[in-house]
Amino acid sequence: MGNGKFAKEFAKGIILANPVFVLALGLCPTLAISTSIDNALGMTLAVLIVLLGSNIIIALIRNFVPNITRIPIFIVIIATLVTVVNLIFHAYLPATYEALGIFLPLIVVNCIILGRAEAFASKNPVASSIADALGITVGFMLALLMISFIRQVLGTGGLSVFGHDLFTLPGLRDHPIAIFILPYGAFLVIGLLMGLFRRTGVMKNE
């Protein structure tokens, strides 16, 4: 496979098929953990490991899996990878493990992972499946970072990443707009962002 095709599969996931804003997949974790940049990065790392692993394994075995039992097989592969990620996070990133809570094991039922396995990795060779996994993860990361950035800055009045204070907004620091850090703020931010993307033509109207 040439570089051109690899780049194409990679770029597709970032804008045209952005999993969150365009396909509206994986909404549960996106909304739930986008309260801080730390959580967004932790979630991205977990999704990267699981998606990359499942896309590679499924692309490798795609010719041996009987069509009728493919979904249960994919689910077991994904569940095993999620268990591994869960144990790794518990051991090496305990703070992130606590912050992500049940959304770390819930990656099993994240439609992005099974969706890519079914729609892409089960029909394509390993190299393009890797490109697909990386592109989709970058698209997921950008969406998460965008939402988390807005929520964290408006909801806490500043930005700190892994304990380093990057900046604070003096007025907001004392009186942050708490709704953005609460669950309802997540719905508000993603709704407004989607509307904005459609208005500016980045995304198509319905």
């Binding site: 509206a24 719905f187 508000l188 993603i190 709704g191 407004l192 989607m194 509307g195 904005l196 459609r198 208005r199 109207n205 319905e206």
Partner: peptide, 11 residues
């Protein structure tokens, strides 16, 4: 127009 469908559902 740009808020029709999903965006307004989120709000």
């Amino acid at each position: 127009k740009s808020m029709k469908g999903l965006p307004i559902a989120f709000i």
